[in-house]
Design a protein around this nucleic acid. Structure first.
Lengths: 239, 239, 239, 239
DNA sequence: AATGAATGAGCTTTCATTCAT
DNA sequence: GATGAATGAAAGCTCATTCAT
């Protein structure tokens, strides 16, 4: 079932044929999905239905009527999210330089996951929500495949990585959250992209270290008197 | 499993220097920490105190008396875990080839995280447990720093990565769990190491794809008729 | 199943005198009553209106519009049920031997209750639905009274039982449900009839005990080693 | 496990050996059982655990800790109730005239059921609670068997009725509830006893009709102008 | 008038934390 | 100090009834 939130563009193959708005129920459905998108994005897929209902401005029962189990609701969102990802992948295909396209796709889809804890959880291979909405995923896969194949055809990406490797790597990078350095992940994106390049003569410059870096160095000096050789380090769980 | 029973724990291999057990209380404390190590490893840091108490053979109240908040208990374990990691890092320093040492350290400490869900959660920079036990971490940092510095001195690792980058990258890789392919993470470790190498002429061979890969390819063919160029792909949330 | 569509229903066999269906509303009313008859029969008078609506093929709201409270709906059915009972009582009157007639009436009307949980609940004196549809009952009473009076006139039934005693006794017997022994109630019907007979020299033979009886005797022997004197016992809540 | 409410006398075979009071928890357990006895008696076995907890003066969680499922709680009560019934049956055995003993037992145990909706539901052969606490029942059965055997030995009760027949008949009679005539059931008890007697020359006088009888006769006269031959009728679902 | 979506109170159950013994 | 029983808020889910369309 194709579901649109108010902010989504259809990319499915069904075509954008005018679908007459149903009842007032359709509006509620949309409200629920929108609320769920927010709540799942903020709190993850375990969030309570009560919260979703409250934020949608409907009763709890309404949420349950529309989505008797959590999976159904998540799937509805998944369809939406994959539609978004497909748009991004399509942009990559439309980019002349396949490597640049791939790079941009990585960056934008990771950004998507970082703003949306729920999406991130859906995309992790393990966990209870790994196998939802295969149809939605199926639509996305060929598009991503084109992105990858073009990069390979242009000789820019190593031949031994595959489709799902890309998914895993994106998920990995979007794991890097730091409230103090919201852009920290870009540093690791660059590293990962370096690992995907078919070859490179030297390192790609890493994004500049974020301000909070000082934390670590203060820390080190305070604690151990040791000076790191490298100056461009950044914070992490180690600090 | 080696368990340290005081909050100010020695770093390194000092060994079991005789420190006489105090009261019953001290023994209980040890039992609780040992139980918590198991439980957190299996179920993560959210695990119930009841379970820990049961496994330690003490009452719930005893756990709370010893560790009024969860953070205290986690910190106690963190000390222990960093001791283990320090041992591993020391092995890296003792390895002639600094790059091999670094590589081995990555592999072994990731393996540690994968067997210990709690440790993994502690090391993730975000989350409620990001800033615990700075003292324990401080002891570890210089050792890790040596590992990094030696690799840099031998010219094997790019100069622009720092100490905490290593931590982030390890944590990222240990994010890759797949019940069907327990060794899947090694594939991404190789990629990450490729990104750290100061230069490379071509890709390092990736660990062979696991059997369950076929899932994706069946899927692709069934669904879209598209053939992936690359045969060495692996499963992920996309499939 | 014969369904009457007005609240003031004829008693007896007047037959399907042509009364033209009114609006759609009238047809819906009939559908609802028919559906309610089924549902109440199967699930009792507490059954949800949703189920009735679904089975009638109308919306929930329609059921509530037609029958703002449950009582109204039950009363409508009661009229119908008492019509059926009146038919049965009339057959008793038409039977030469008044005692046989009474007996048959007991048997058939109990059978009715056992197939219709709702009717059974309506006839129980207590409960929230005890005092419904007095008019419907009033039509039935004289007929039943004739049955009773004829039996008394022929001297076959004790003089001190009255009209409503018959109702109570029928309801009591139809209380005996056992999925394993669907005919168990006949045993107690015979006992009850024995109690109504004006006199008897010995016991009327009871219907043979059902196979599942063995449960109790196994049980007794296993547990207490006691042998019951009487072999014709039957299962119950005691076993 | 033998459970006593404060009002119960032990009849089990374990003997009245002094059992040391356990913890404070034992007191709560007793409070819960007592509360449950009240609540189940009033509202039936479907009553909410919240109500029980409130009436016992404990938290909901406490009830669940003690009785993780409803069956366990019901069984605890069942043990108690069967203890009470066993006392009554024992009194019957101690009565010289076995028939009088049987009669008294019927009367008192029916009275028990009528005050306790929960007990009544437990004793009904069908329903979800039919097969609980077989051990408790097992203790009761031999005693009841003695009651029956003595009556047979004295020739006062028909030979073809068995143990469980007695149970069914008691349950049947205790079905007769009428708020306006609390003693109505005694009328049907007399009838049932008449049916059990091995023989009788005429009817045993029925208990006098209760005042509310007038309802029916008013009703009849108002409605149909028919005069019943029999004057001693009583109210029921028919009126 | 018909619809069936919406409501929200109510029930069950769990669990982190406190407290009486 | 140790215990594990008690707590009570919270979450999941249902369902009788009302109401907007």
């Amino acid at each position: 079932m194709q579901v649109m939130t108010t902010t989504t563009t259809s990319v499915g193959t069904k075509g954008p044929a005018a679908r007459p708005l149903r009842a007032d129920a359709e509006r509620n459905r949309a409200l629920i999905i929108e609320a769920a998108a927010q709540v799942f994005a903020e709190k993850g897929l375990d969030a309570g239905f009560d919260e979703i209902a409250r934020r949608a401005g409907v009763g709890t029962g309404t949420v349950y009527r529309r989505f008797p189990d959590r999976d159904g609701l998540i799937e509805a969102l998944l369809v939406d999210s994959f539609d978004k990802m497909t748009v991004l992948a399509q942009e990559a295909i439309d980019t002349e330089d396949a490597w640049v396209g791939l790079t941009n796709f990585f960056r934008s889809s990771i950004r998507l996951q970082m703003k949306d804890q729920g999406l991130h959880e859906m995309l992790k291979a393990n966990g209870p929500w790994a196998d939802l909405a295969p149809a939605a995923k199926a639509k996305f896969i060929p598009v991503l495949n084109s992105v990858l194949d073009r990069a390979k055809a242009q000789g820019r990406i190593r031949e031994d990585v595959g489709l799902t490797d890309l998914g895993v790597l994106m998920t990995m990078v979007s794991t890097v959250h730091d409230p103090d350095q919201p852009d920290l992940w870009e540093r690791y994106l660059v590293l990962v992209l370096d690992s995907l390049a078919s070859s490179r003569t030297g390192p790609t410059p890493l994004p500049a270290r974020a301000p909070s870096d000082s934390r670590l160095h203060e820390h080190l000096e305070r604690t151990s008197g040791i000076r790191s050789r490298s100056g461009s380090d950044t914070g992490s769980g180690l600090c």
